[in-house]
Simulated assay, not measured.
Amino acid sequence: MVKYIVLGALMVLTVTTYSQSFKLDKFSEKAHKTTQTGMLVLSGWAVANIGTGFIAAGQTGGSDKYMHQMNAYFNIVNLAIAQAGYWGSRKRMKSPQSFSQAVKQQNSEEKTFLLNAGLDAAYILGGLYWAELGKKHPGEKKYFQFRGYGKSLVLQGGFLMIFDGLMYTIRHRQGKILFKQLENIDLAIAPGGAGLVYRF
């Protein structure tokens, strides 16, 4: 009798796993595409700042020159991070995710965007501090450098805070769909073993 119960449970779990896997695949694909789109937006911002930054730095003077320089240098790093994120997501997209892997990836991305938003706030505060520090060197080269670098950090930090905030919001909403599935999973204990049962 126990064998028939176990066999029946395995059949139910097989059908359930197939149904859940199909939904999970769709979720994972949408999540990856969201991340990839975000990384392409960040790459576009970076490329635009690198190009205009180096060109404008050679055509302007004073604090504007240093602002454009910092925009270019700052976004070389941004571009590297965005491309690593994009290609990493593309690579993960080729392999099917288990439910636990999807949860782990979801948590990791949400935490990353929140952490980045905190760093963005630090960039803005650092930029304001540099701009204020420049006032201590009126008429000197440091005045223009600090003012220019400060304005750049405020601009870049402001953009990144909006970007990371939007990315967190979108991925968090997607995550609610994933975590809602946990409500349908129960631990079943029977003679000879235990297992997880997914309720339709």
Rank of each mutant, 00 (worst) to 15 (best):
L133M: 11
L166P: 03
D164K: 09
E132L: 03
K142D: 07
L128R: 05
Y168L: 12
K135L: 13
K136Q: 13
P138F: 09
Y143D: 14
I162Y: 10
L160R: 01
G158Y: 07
G127N: 10
E132M: 06
L153D: 04
P138R: 06
F144R: 06
F146M: 08
R147L: 13
A131E: 13
K151P: 00
G150N: 00
L128A: 09
Y143R: 11
G139I: 08
Y143H: 14
Y168K: 02
L166T: 12
H137M: 07
K136G: 00
L128F: 07
L153C: 05
G157A: 09
S152I: 01
A131C: 00
Y168D: 08
L128W: 02
Y168F: 14
G157I: 06
K136A: 14
K141V: 14
V154K: 06
Q156K: 10
L128V: 07
Q145A: 02
G165C: 14
K135I: 05
L133Q: 13
Q145D: 02
G165H: 11
G165I: 15
T169A: 15
Q145C: 00
Q156V: 13
H137I: 01
Y143W: 05
L133E: 12
G158H: 07
Q156F: 06
M167C: 04
H137L: 06
I162T: 15
F163C: 01
K142A: 12
F159I: 14
F163A: 06
F159W: 14
F163W: 10
Y143T: 09
F144V: 08
G134R: 07
P138W: 06
H137C: 00
R147Q: 14
P138G: 07
F146D: 07
G148D: 03
L133K: 15
G139D: 10
Q156C: 13
L128H: 04
H137V: 03
L153P: 01
L166D: 05
G139A: 06
L128S: 07
L153A: 13
F144P: 00
K135N: 13
E132C: 00
K151G: 00
T169W: 10
G127W: 06
L153E: 12
A131K: 12
M161D: 03
M161H: 14
P138E: 10
W130V: 01
Y143Q: 15
M161S: 12
L160V: 11
H137S: 15
L128T: 04
Q156S: 11
Y129E: 03
R147T: 10
L133P: 03
G127H: 09
Q156Y: 08
H137G: 05
H137F: 15
Y129P: 00
W130M: 09
G158L: 08
L166K: 06
F146S: 03
M161I: 09
K136P: 00
M167H: 06
L153H: 05
I162C: 13
K142G: 00
L128M: 09
M161N: 13
F163S: 04
I162A: 15
M167T: 02
G158N: 06
H137D: 14
V154R: 04
